[in-house]
């Protein structure tokens, strides 16, 4: 029963499989992104209150919500690292941290650009914004911890623990807008009904953008994990052969 699990944990197997998935993911991402961006910029109606700044939502919301996936991913990878000592899990966790930091920073920046005209301020120390900033610093902390410890195994264990603890911040970010009063608005209730005020014309492009940005997250994670695999396995025969065969300038 556990066989598939350990096969998945083989870096060589992952490298070969992900090489097959990448082109498809790339096509899917490009298609979703082009449809989503054109729809958001050209066809989404202006909001009755915020006018054209509603178009900012189609970047901000996907990036922010996917940034929340990063810590749970790193925590699960951390548990696998600690319990089963699977090398691939630690490689994924290592590559996820900088990508997550990028996502969090872009979410904070796009939110600030939106808040400046709409709220009248680009920053407020409310629970949502502050917990998001904490996520950013936690990710920087994970990256710093990894680079501070020389031994790969010790670094893997320390980062796994920090990731598991840091994942507690995710439900805090998610529910901050309900638990406390904040400047940030709560999540919207979009409606399936064609004639509802917040109907499909507003949320369908948002769903497309969320899937597009998810594809982008997975692609960039796979790309840097593949590099990490080559780096750590550079002495094994299959990597030596691969480098010899590779056609690059």
């Amino acid at each position: 029963m556990w066989q598939w699990f350990f096969r998945l944990g083989s870096p060589k197997w992952f490298y070969e499989m992900s090489g097959k998935w990448l082109p498809w993911l790339f096509v899917l991402m490009t298609a979703l992104l082009s449809v989503g961006i054109v729809w958001a910029l050209l066809y989404v109606p202006q909001d009755y209150q915020q006018g054209d700044t509603i178009r900012i939502m189609y970047v901000h919301v996907p990036v922010a919500s996917i940034s929340l996936a990063c810590f749970p991913l790193m925590a699960v990878a951390g548990i696998i690292t600690l319990v089963w000592k699977m090398k691939l899990a630690d490689m994924v966790a290592k590559c996820a941290a900088p990508i997550g930091a990028w996502f969090t920073a872009v979410a904070l920046a796009t939110g600030a650009i939106w808040g400046q005209p709409i709220w009248g301020t680009w920053w407020a120390w409310d629970a949502r914004l502050t917990s998001m900033l904490i996520q950013f610093f936690l990710l920087i902390g994970v990256i710093a911890l990894r680079s501070a410890i020389e031994s790969t195994d010790a670094a893997a264990k320390a980062c796994a623990l920090l990731s598991i603890v840091g994942a507690i911040n995710v439900p805090i970010i998610k529910y901050s807008v309900e638990w406390w009063n904040t400047l940030h608005q709560p999540a919207s209730n979009f409606s399936m009904a064609e004639d509802s005020p917040m109907g499909p014309e507003i949320w369908v492009p948002l769903v497309i953008m969320i899937f597009a940005v998810y594809c982008f997250f997975v692609i960039s994670l796979i790309l840097s994990t593949r590099n990490e695999i080559l780096e750590r396995e550079r002495r094994s025969q299959w990597v030596v052969d691969l480098i010899a065969d590779e056609r690059t300038n």
Partner: peptide, 20 residues
Amino acid sequence: SRVLAKHDENYMSVEVKAAL
């Protein structure tokens, strides 16, 4: 000394708002 606007979670197009 400072007033900020709180945006609600409702998004509506100009036409829909006018119709409502």
